[in-house]
Design a protein around this nucleic acid. Structure first.
Length: 819
RNA sequence: GCCGAAGUGGCGGAAUUGGCAGACGCAGGGGACUCAAAAUCCCCCGGUCGCAAGGCCUUGCGGGUUCGAGUCCCGCCUUCGGCACCA
């Protein structure tokens, strides 16, 4: 009998719908479980990456529900963003219609997969009821100076015609369209994520169930470094140059001070003689992005004509501007110590500046020096500090600087504030007006939402589209009532995704972003699944938002997700699936061919969820074959299940019971803890194989009937999170009513799972020589005696002296012999 | 350069965290059923020597610890990912 998945899947899905099975009903007195997959961008079609991501979540969510827990497993849409707008520019449809119709199409696809989503909780970020709360959070942050406007050099993507956050620049290109990013001086809104650098970094230690690589990437990205600020006086001028250094111990070796070309003091420090050179250098640097400068590596600079005074040695050293000093990091100024910093070394060689060794690791001389020495050692030529260990000197010298008022120990971070202004239409309007007399004025809360107008000319030409909508732009100043103009930039869509997980807990809530009661019941997320590409974007932003929301008193926790899993990429024939390579696998076509259950099973069976996965069609055939075998086993067993049953105490019946309970133990452990879903499926396959073998020798006794019934029902139940359609169908065949997802999960009996005989391997000198099967619970002496009796072992120990005897309970015996 | 992950049969991958390497599946070979095919079922399937019993080798490479190492330690090689003129 061949099982037809299409017929079954359609019928079973209809029953689920009829029973409103996926609506979450909270029961009192049971644990909660919030299982969340990163919501989707409504591009129009789901791909294999979605299939994998959502199947993992679905299996885990179903499992927890079967165990009787309150499970929140929602899905929604990250519905603002560029593709919708670009489609409109191409004249396809209004972004709103484009988005809505894509969502409708994708929901059909998701339902076909059999995914257990409570659509009653769906969230769409482009709805005013959602984005008004983006605006509200913005106002709250504005009140606390966590949102501010500043003129900065920002990343401009000429392809997307908008500004990008630092996190959205990859290798000097736009994360979305990969155009080379340019630097532009623009007035922008920023969120002060840097205020949370310390907590974002420290909090990582409280996330043991996050993947090590994500934690490492975030740590790297936040980039803490310990050092000191030191003020250098400028000879003959009142102002001081503040530098940041991690090597204050090398300060006696500083032979110049170098400023970034954009440093605010750069022009002022130019002497009359150097003025034109300084200005032309600044002009040359202006067009170059940090990325361009970094990749050229060549050190370029110009002397300003001014001199700085080393506050320790009082030495007078020249002040330069150079391309390798970044305005964005530290203070935008450094002290240059050529002997102990490679960049400074190269710069010194280029411009003929002196090189002086001040930390002696042993045998280091300036003559013949090919590169800087970063090593530790004892200070030399360092005034009163000479002879001191350099690590010690760092502390002492920073303390001296602080005591004398020309510096202090300091920690700096690489993490910069989050620029959220986007010069595009399809996003959340920033709730601010610019009044001629009052300046920047936030829109009062009661006027929210600032609605995104529907009719907006979209040309893709570059400035904010909203600026062309007079009805939107012209507003009254909330403060003075005078004429004002609205902010026409919209927010980065990563703002939307920074708190959506909280909205799911009370998606219909009015008057607040979310119900605080619901949020503190459900959140933090127990299990969060998504792609690793968000490691330093979404996954850092939503941690930041969670901390801010906690500080606003809205939630009682600061970390949004307890456990994170990043599913591996789905590739085909060793290459990433892409349209240009023509190796896209269409989920719909796969479901058409093998059924949703087989597709789900295959994508989970092929490798552990977090590993890269090479989609193999033959695997889907294998999965379908297995489901067929399960179907056959049930069909074959069915006629035998009616008669009287008695628990078996020995023989094949007991052996099958053992296998059944061992499988329950293994599968439960995988689903509850380890989540190596491929091995859970392997265990189920083994159980099915055992049942097949059992049936071929089935003797129709009440004992064997008991074992068979128990085993088959356990298999169908445990397979149901993976292949929910087939299993619900089989459950009905087996004479049961209702749905497997409502539980219960099979109970595990350790006593039955444990064999009363154990097979041990016997080694002689660490080499496997034989096996013995003995009763459980024998003493080591008895086990050793049995081992020595084994004929194969005997042959290897005969005539030799046994030097050592080892027994590892229920595993192995090792006899060490000599001679 | 720094940080992280990984390297196991023809392939995807297992291995209870130091205890029988290769579970489970895919591909392949042989057989049964069939007029035939599909489907299904049974057997074989890391390498090597051997008729066989069995021996030897084998988890990227080289050392080490241990009765015992895919797993731990030291030193390399390779691949992938992230960051990178960050002072």
């Amino acid at each position: 009998m061949v099982y037809d998945p299409h017929d079954t899947e359609a019928r079973v899905q209809e029953k689920w719908r009829g029973a409103n099975l996926f609506k979450m009903e909270e029961k009192p007195g049971v644990p909660k479980y919030y299982c969340l997959e990163m919501f989707m961008y409504p591009s129009g079609r789901i791909h294999m990456g979605h299939v994998r991501n959502y199947t993992i979540g679905d299996v885990v969510a179903r499992f927890h529900r079967m165990r009787g827990e309150n499970v929140l497993h929602p899905m929604g849409f990250d519905a603002f963003g560029l593709p919708a707008e670009n489609a409109a520019i191409k004249g396809q449809a209004h972004p709103k219609e484009w988005t809505d119709s894509n969502i409708a199409a994708m929901k059909v696809q998701l339902d076909r997969m059999g995914l257990m989503y409570d659509w009653g909780r769906e969230v769409r970020t482009c709805e005013p009821e959602y984005y008004r709360w983006n605006q509200w959070f913005f106002l709250k942050m504005f009140e606390r100076s966590l949102a501010y406007k500043a003129k900065r050099r920002v990343n401009w993507c000429p392809g997307c015609k908008t500004v990008l956050a630092n996190e959205q620049v990859e290798d000097g290109t736009c994360w979305r369209c990969h155009s080379a990013v340019e630097l532009k001086e623009m007035e922008q809104w920023f969120l002060r994520i840097s205020d949370y650098s310390n907590e974002l970094l420290g909090g990582l230690a409280s996330l043991p169930e996050w993947p090590a690589e994500v934690v490492a990437m975030q740590r790297n990205w936040i980039g803490r470094s310990e050092g000191a600020y030191v003020d250098f006086a400028v000879d003959g001028r009142p102002e001081k140059i503040k530098v940041f250094t991690t090597r204050i111990d090398t300060i006696y070796g500083a032979t110049c001070v170098v400023l970034a070309p954009e440093h605010p003091m750069a022009s002022a420090l130019a002497s009359a003689a150097q003025k034109s050179e300084v200005e032309s250098f600044k002009a040359a640097m202006r067009g170059q992005s940090t990325h361009d400068r970094a990749t050229s590596k060549e050190k370029k600079g110009v002397f300003t004509g001014s001199f700085a005074v080393n506050p320790f040695s009082k030495e007078r050293i020249p002040v330069y501007l150079a391309n390798f000093v970044l305005m964005e990091y530290g203070t935008g100024a450094i002290m240059s110590v050529p002997a102990h910093d490679q960049r400074d070394f190269e710069f010194a060689r280029q411009y003929g500046l002196p090189v002086r060794v001040v930390v002696q690791p042993g045998g280091l001389t300036v003559e013949g020096m090919k590169e800087a020495s970063p090593l530790d050692g004892l200070l030399e030529e360092s005034g009163p500090f000479t002879g001191m260990n350099n690590r010690e000197a760092m502390k002492v010298m920073a303390a001296k600087a602080a005591a004398e008022g020309f510096g202090e120990a300091a920690v700096t971070f690489r993490l910069k504030d989050w620029g959220i202004s986007r010069q595009r239409y399809w996003g959340t309007p920033i709730p601010v007006v610019n009044c001629e007399s009052c300046g920047t004025v936030p829109v009062p809360e009661k006027e929210l939402p600032v609605l995104l107008p529907y009719d907006v000319p979209l040309t893709g030409k570059g400035e904010s589209p909203l600026a062309r909508v007079a009805g939107f732009v012209n507003a009254k100043c909330p403060k003075c009532g005078g004429p004002a103009k609205r902010e026409t930039d919209t927010m980065d869509t990563f703002v939307d995704s920074s708190w959506y997980f909280l909205r799911y807990t009370s998606p219909k809530e009015k008057g607040r972003a979310f119900s605080q009661e619901a949020a503190s019941y459900w959140a933090p997320i127990d299990f969060y699944i998504g792609g690793i590409e968000h490691a330093t974007m979404h996954l850092i932003y939503f941690r930041f938002f969670t901390m801010v929301l906690r500080d606003l008193g809205l939630i009682p926790f600061g970390e949004p997700a307890r456990r994170l899993m990043c599913q591996g990429m789905v590739i085909k024939d060793g290459a990433k699936m892409s349209k240009s390579l023509g190796n896209i696998v269409d989920p719909d076509a796969m479901i058409e061919r093998y059924g949703a259950d087989a597709v789900r099973l295959n994508i989970l069976f092929l490798s552990p969820p977090w590993d890269q996965l090479d989609w193999k069609e033959s695997g889907a055939e294998g999965a379908a074959r297995f489901l067929n075998r399960v179907y056959d086993v049930v069909e074959e067993a069915l006629p035998y299940l009616g008669g009287p049953v008695t628990p078996p105490r020995d023989g094949e019946g007991l052996a099958l019971r053992r296998k059944t309970h061992q499988t329950v133990g293994r599968v439960t452990a995988e689903l509850a803890e380890r989540l190596k879903l491929n091995t859970a499926i392997a265990a189920l396959m083994e159980l099915c194989n055992a049942q097949q073998a059992f049936l071929s020798g089935f003797r129709q006794t009440p004992e064997e009937r008991f074992a068979l019934k128990e085993s088959v029902e356990a298999l169908v139940t445990m397979l149901s999170p993976f292949a929910p359609h087939l299993c619900d169908e089989l459950w009905e065949k087996l004479g049961h009513e209702g749905f497997l997802v409502l539980g219960p999960w099979p109970s595990f009996d350790a006593k039955i799972a444990t064999e009363d005989e154990v097979t041990l391997a016997v080694q002689v000198n660490g080499k496997l020589r034989g096996q013995i099967t003995v009763a459980r619970g024998l003493s080591d002496q008895e086990v050793l005696a049995a081992a020595k009796e084994n004929p194969k072992v005997k042959a290897h120990i005969e005539g030799k002296a046994i030097v050592k005897e080892l027994v590892v309970k229920e595993r192995i015996v090792n006899l060490v012999v000599k001679g």
